[in-house]
Amino acid sequence: MNPITSLTKAVAGLNRRLLLRLLRVGLPRYGKRLLFAVSLFAGLKHLTHNELQELEVLNEKMSLSSSKEALEVPALLARTIWSGCNLDETVATGSLDACSLKVVEQMPKWLQYDDMKQMLDDARTVMQTAKLGLA
């Protein structure tokens, strides 16, 4: 392998690890909650930039932000945040509780902002608001 390519990959890996550490430690609880809920909702609904007004319903139910503009970036990052989890497959089978558990178990670890009960409650609320037809 080319030494420059190796160096570029090493630097990129270091940057990614540094960013994840900053997000884990530096992002406040409410920021992680907003990022979790909005990105999950957008990932489940496959929202495009033109459909972001649907986030207002989620925001009303969960009181995530006083500014609707704050919802846009997490929604646009949904694909990146949930890249390690096939959300469609996760919610395709099982009950609302089982799907919520799968989502919380598969989410990026740096995104955890509370205990398991609260995370499950929020995942349930997101899925119910997304109207996925889970019981």
Rank of each mutant, 00 (worst) to 15 (best):
A135G: 12
L111Q: 03
V73P: 10
V91G: 04
C99V: 06
G43Y: 06
L76A: 09
K45V: 00
E56R: 13
S100T: 05
M107E: 04
R79S: 08
A42W: 07
V91C: 06
L22C: 06
S95F: 13
V103N: 02
G31E: 07
N59G: 04
T5N: 14
K117R: 10
V57E: 09
T80H: 08
I81W: 03
E72P: 01
K9M: 14
E56Q: 13
N2L: 14
S6L: 15
F36C: 08
D115Q: 02
V25N: 10
Y113L: 02
F36N: 07
R33N: 04
A130K: 01
W110D: 06
M127K: 08
D115H: 07
L77V: 12
L111G: 04
K109C: 01
T80G: 00
L132T: 10
H49Q: 12
L35G: 07
T80V: 11
T93G: 00
L20D: 02
L71W: 10
R29S: 02
L96M: 05
Q128P: 01
Q128H: 02
S63V: 07
C85K: 00
F41L: 03
M127C: 06
V103R: 02
R124F: 12
K131G: 04
Y30P: 04
T80Q: 12
M107W: 05
V11R: 13
E89S: 05
L132S: 10
L77G: 08
Q106S: 15
S100C: 08
L23E: 05
N50F: 15
L22W: 07
A92Q: 03
L22F: 08
L132A: 11
A42G: 08
S39V: 09
K45N: 00
E72T: 14
D122Q: 12
Q112L: 14
L20I: 04
L134D: 04
I81R: 08
S67Q: 15
E54C: 01
L120E: 02
T5E: 15
G43C: 10
L23D: 02
R124P: 03
L52F: 10
